[in-house]
Amino acid sequence: MVKHTHLGVYGVLIQHDHILLIQKARGPHKGKWDLPGGSIEFGEEPEHTLQREFIEETGLSPIKGSIRTAISYTIVYQYEANQIEELHHIGIMYDVELLNDKAVIKTDGDGQDSLGAKWIPLESLGLLPLTPFVEMMMEPVLKGETSKEAEVEG
């Protein structure tokens, strides 16, 4: 089995009780809803990765990000017809603020990793197939906790 570590930067953007997610076009989570973000290119600052990935996957700019946490998980999946891969996925998570309230999201995908971006009502998150990063970052919402309860526990 091939083992692979992936480091990425991802953003949590919530407005008006909706979260901005992208639908994965490939990889172990194909078809699931994920946070906008992706791989840090060689020599790239994480903040620049966040800005670049948001433009590529959602079309939104400018944004402001502040680091919330770093999390990870492992998953075993079929990479190719005859190859099983174990992925250790590490994510640097940012809280994101949209600086242009007139910006329109890109719903047609980026031709690579995203099938398109969509504003998802927080109340319907539990009905969708989600990636582990969305599940981890939105755990209080998925458990039905209110914002006040989540803030008290956090």
Rank of each mutant, 00 (worst) to 15 (best):
M1N: 02
K3C: 10
K3A: 08
H4Q: 10
H4F: 11
T5L: 10
H6L: 13
L7V: 09
G8N: 11
V9R: 08
V9A: 05
G11I: 09
V12S: 13
Q15L: 02
H16A: 15
H16K: 15
H18R: 10
I22C: 03
K24P: 04
A25H: 09
R26Q: 05
G27E: 13
P28V: 00
P28D: 10
P28Q: 12
H29G: 10
H29T: 11
K30P: 07
K30D: 03
K30Y: 05
G31I: 01
D34R: 02
L35W: 03
P36N: 08
G37T: 09
G37N: 09
G38Q: 01
G38R: 04
I40Y: 14
F42V: 01
F42I: 14
E45P: 09
E47D: 08
T49P: 07
T49C: 15
L50Y: 04
E57C: 05
T58V: 01
G59I: 04
G59R: 11
L60I: 11
S61Y: 12
P62Q: 03
P62G: 04
G65W: 05
S66T: 14
R68T: 10
T69C: 07
I71Q: 06
Y73M: 11
T74R: 12
I75P: 00
I75T: 04
I75L: 08
I75N: 03
V76L: 01
Y77A: 08
Q78T: 06
E80T: 14
A81F: 13
A81D: 09
N82T: 00
N82C: 00
I84K: 02
E85P: 13
E86W: 04
L87D: 06
L87F: 12
H89T: 13
I90T: 12
G91A: 03
G91I: 00
G91R: 10
G91N: 12
G91D: 01
Y94V: 07
Y94C: 04
D95R: 01
V96P: 04
E97G: 11
L98F: 09
L99K: 06
N100S: 02
N100K: 03
N100M: 05
I105L: 14
I105Q: 02
K106T: 05
T107C: 08
D108K: 00
G111Y: 07
Q112T: 09
S114N: 05
L115V: 06
G116I: 08
A117Y: 11
K118R: 07
W119M: 06
P121R: 01
L122Q: 01
S124D: 06
L125M: 05
L125A: 13
L128W: 03
P129A: 15
L130G: 00
L130V: 00
F133M: 11
V134G: 11
V134Y: 10
E135A: 10
M138T: 01
E139A: 15
L142E: 00
L142G: 14
K143G: 03
K143P: 03
K143Y: 15
G144A: 06
K148H: 14
K148S: 06
E149F: 07
E149L: 14
A150Y: 08
E151H: 01
V152S: 06
E153W: 14
E153N: 11
G154E: 15
